[in-house]
Design a protein around this nucleic acid. Structure first.
Lengths: 336, 336
DNA sequence: CCTGCAGATTACAACGTTGGAAAGAATGTA
DNA sequence: TACATTCTTTCCAACGTTGTAATCTGCAGG
């Protein structure tokens, strides 16, 4: 049916192996022979069978990206960055959505699909630190995110504490002192919420302010609706505040919307800063100050590390931790 | 190294083929044997080698989704819908981003990666009707979008004209008569822009209003920034209007932002409706009325059609055209 | 003219799985 | 008991490619 190496070999009057050698750029091929083979490939429109290659060589040039949810702008942008980085290096990406569910993440990690890819980028959400033993799978892996540290694999993340501290200081510098830590998970120590809360506390402390627990506002999952919901409760409770450090952009946008509905002016009455620098923050009303988490750098580094593991180039290297640089992006929502 | 069927066969004391038969649910296997094999699989943690299976059977259970850009909310949501539909049927999805470039789309369509997937869902942007000959590839394919009609393959799309007409009527019913057709491409006949403009015209005509060319506002690519940019020009020009039919949500949101900056009240001064029902429209200020294009139905149908083609179930059936149903979603931006 | 050697090409096996057909076991019928 | 029939299992080959090792070619040096 389809054209195989056999057909090319026949057309170019060489052996199948020579065709393979030409395709794989092996040394010691006469220029004239190479020419002839390439011509035949061109003429017949030959395309290699990647399943066969995968079977024989153990490589598929496919990597898997496990993320909670593509509808979430942060992950959509991360996926884009990863695919771009992978594409540069000749790899394609299979995206697997976990929904952030523990069971689903384990299912994916231990499913047969893992055997079809050369490696995995795993953005952890469902598992947590005590599950560190469960992520030791035979497929090369690079971990993303803040849920598991010091695992058996390379790990790429952002400077959560430092960035959150910087975001908080950004508001403090503008004279705001009654700052909500918006999107906290109080029982969490690591994890994005835990680390960002820690950064918030450090900034307060450095400024000589007391941490007040009632200013830490819970919002379990970080969707826009959660931010809206949480802010509605805050306003009802009559809590007094003049600034919001939101732990991601989506809840910041949700909260902003609710505050505006309630007649609060941003940034005059309340200044607000988010986290992630999703595209939308540049177009909201007002535009949202935020933290650029270095998504491009994260994706590039993660893909590069993964490929080193796959190639065995980093064989001897122990598990690495990498933190991308961040930037405070100042926009209208804190332009006081 | 890894566990193969051979190991399982040995452990269960049966032949390799019996293991294969059990895995593939072949008829005529003694319950006791099946039990024994499954136990061995469990015990050894066997995972099938998908490359080998792909080579032998010609199936990989992977489908490819070609879209312009994952950062675009519409496509992120479409990708999510497609992956969910595919996952239900045991398939995974490789996403390929084309950037909407003609060259890149052709490269993907004719690249070797096409041979690794069972089928393709191709959301056309770079190619157009006169390229219809170029999309006749050996891999089963279902076309998405409005750029190419009556191609050699199945095609799933939305009711652009009808939906745009309904959106326009939605504003007309609310007493607005000076409506911008926002995001038009005047030279286009088919394509989303062309069809949506046609729907706009039909609604005007039906209401006994004249089509005025100066109200058709160009915005080439439909990103938020294009909407903002185009609206800035409209406002500068002093054009008089009281309603906007935006041809997608992103440009609607961009335009809304610019109008608000200029002191216009929405919906009091200008009512606006978008297209696509992306998540963000539920949280913008004001929330944006829009058209739900039936994304879920589109994804489900497209995947189902593709699988029928792959299975050969629709072998005899000629190329099909399917239009998903739409809904007008009325929100604050048109709540007059 | 033979030998040695590097460069170029090829033969062969193997990767792990499944399709097809043959062989073997179990059951029913005369 | 013998034989036909059905169910169950196995044997063999093949999918298209690449790694290993072997072969072959041409040429320099003695």
């Amino acid at each position: 049916m389809a054209i195989t190496m056999r057909d090319v070999a026949q057309a170019a009057d060489v052996s199948i192996k020579t065709v393979s050698n030409v395709i794989n750029d092996h040394p010691n091929i006469k220029a004239e022979t190479r020419e002839r083979v390439l011509l035949a490939i061109e003429k017949l429109g030959y395309q290699p069978n990647l399943s066969a290659r995968g079977l024989r060589s153990g490589r598929t040039d496919v990597i898997s990206l496990i993320i909670p949810d593509l509808k979430n702008a942060y992950f959509a942008e991360l996926a884009d960055a990863v695919m771009t980085a992978a594409s540069k290096r000749g790899k394609v990406v299979i995206i697997e959505q976990s929904g952030g569910s523990r069971a689903r993440e384990l299912e994916i990690l231990h499913g047969p699909r893992m055997r079809m890819v050369d490696g995995v980028l795993y953005s952890v959400l469902g598992l947590s630190q005590e599950d560190v033993g469960l992520i030791d799978i035979p497929t090369p892996m690079v971990l993303l995110g803040e849920r598991i540290f010091n695992g058996p694999t390379d790990h790429v993340t952002m400077q959560n504490i430092e960035a959150s501290q910087a975001a908080t200081e950004h508001l403090l510098q503008r004279g705001r002192t009654k700052l909500l830590a918006f999107g906290a998970h109080r029982n969490e120590v690591i994890g994005s919420a835990g680390l960002r809360l820690e950064g918030y506390r450090r900034a307060l402390k450095k400024a000589g302010l007391d941490y007040r627990d009632e200013l830490a506002i819970d919002a379990q999952s970080w969707h826009r609706s959660d931010g809206a919901q949480a802010m509605r409760q805050v306003l009802e409770s009559g809590l007094d505040f003049d600034g919001v450090v939101a732990f991601n952009d989506s809840i910041a946008l949700g909260a902003m919307r609710v505050m505006q509905d309630a007649g609060l002016k941003i940034p005059e009455d309340v200044a607000i800063i988010g986290f992630d620098d999703i595209d939308e923050t540049r177009y909201s009303l007002p535009t949202l100050s935020t933290i650029d988490p270095g998504r491009g750098e994260i994706a590039e580094t993660a893909v590069a590390m993964l490929l080193e593991r796959i190639d065995g180039a980093a064989e001897a290297t122990p598990a690495r931790e990498f933190e991308a640089g961040f930037k405070v992006i100042s926009r209208e929502s804190t332009a006081i």
